[in-house]
């Protein structure tokens, strides 16, 4: 960690928002991306990311320099996402329309393309929600967020071997679920 970072942390702990701004800037987008992969909802992800980063600010005094700052921040983001998911779970179960991917639509695509990718995205993401959450989480971090096995292990505070096995199991489950839920999915994917 650079001297500059350490200083920004100390100043932030002292309540200097400007220093925190400099410190956090680089983490905003990845944190949001992470929240997005957990929550799937654009507005909710923005809200939860903000909540998480405020938590980071308020708890910076407790940061002990044991992990890297990024790992520490992402842990907070992940935990905030999990809390948010718990809170909304009941509501979700009641809701009939699952329109999680409204925000994900890429406006530059042609309508046909949109339709096809939309189907794929929706299908995969919906299926992801049905598999064991521990495995799904690792898939999200690896396949959606593209973090390394080591980084994921640090975020979740689990051994790398566990990351590997959860990923393997998760992918297998995901594949089976897709085949089960969408019998002609494979032909569609191909």
């Amino acid at each position: 960690m650079s001297d500059q970072d350490i200083y920004l942390i100390r100043k932030s702990v002292d309540g200097d928002v400007r220093s925190f701004e400099k410190l956090i800037k680089a983490y905003e987008q990845p944190a949001f991306a992470m929240a997005m992969s957990y929550l799937g909802d654009y507005e909710m992800a923005a809200e939860v990311t903000q909540e998480a980063l405020i938590k980071v600010y308020k708890n910076l005094g407790k940061f002990k320099f044991e992990a890297s700052l990024s790992t520490w921040i992402y842990r907070i983001v992940i935990n905030t996402c999990k809390d948010a998911l718990k809170k909304t779970k009941r509501m979700k179960e009641v809701s009939l329309e699952d329109n999680h991917f409204e925000g994900l639509r890429d406006e530059h695509q042609t309508p046909e393309e949109t339709l096809e990718t939309e189907d794929l995205k929706t299908m995969v993401h919906r299926t992801l929600e049905r598999i064991n959450p521990e495995n799904a989480e690792v898939i999200r971090l690896k396949d959606i967020q593209d973090y390394s096995y080591e980084e994921i292990a640090a975020f979740l505070e689990i051994p790398v071997g566990t990351v590997r096995s959860r990923l393997s199991r998760g992918r297998q489950m995901l594949k089976e679920e897709i085949v089960k839920a969408y019998p002609d999915a494979l032909s569609l994917i191909r």
Binding site: M36, A45, G103, V124, L128, D143, I144
Partner: peptide, 11 residues
């Protein structure tokens, strides 16, 4: 294919 589909979920 599934992995690639997941990658497109990156917001």
């Amino acid at each position: 294919q599934i992995k690639e589909a997941l990658a497109t979920l990156n917001p």
